[in-house]
Amino acid sequence: MSQSPARTVDVRGPRFAAWVTSAVLAVVLLTASGWLAAVQAAVFAVGAAAGLRSAPYAVLFRTLVAPRLGPAREREPEAPVRFAQFVGLVFAGVGVAGYLLGVPVLGAVATGLALVAALLNAATGFCLGCELYLTVRRVRPVRTA
């Protein structure tokens, strides 16, 4: 957890990115392409590691979409979105492994789960990755200060 004032992003950016991600993942499912899945995994990795400022779909949104939409009316903290990119990376990573290591069913199921999360986020703004955070923290052993 960072103590510095939270960096924020235009709420429309992550929604746009979620639509693009959904489209890419749908194509991955239809073509069973491990390499396209790898591209999407790389996109997630950049977003999670370097932040949304450098995330490919966010750059696309800033340069091509946002100028046509006008100024941002609402902003949201970056941290949850970034964490969700990490969760996306985990699922996409399993998908890539499944497709490229000759277990296409695993690839398809992992990609399908990532698609549900991305599509749900695109359509409703709900962040499944963020919701998983506490669930994961809960199962870890307690460490009291």
């Binding site: 991955v28 239809l30 073509t31 069973a32 296409p104 069913v105 990609t111 399908g112």
Partner: peptide, 10 residues
Amino acid sequence: GMSGTGLAVL
């Protein structure tokens, strides 16, 4: 040419 499994999962 499309993946049947992929289509079902989709």
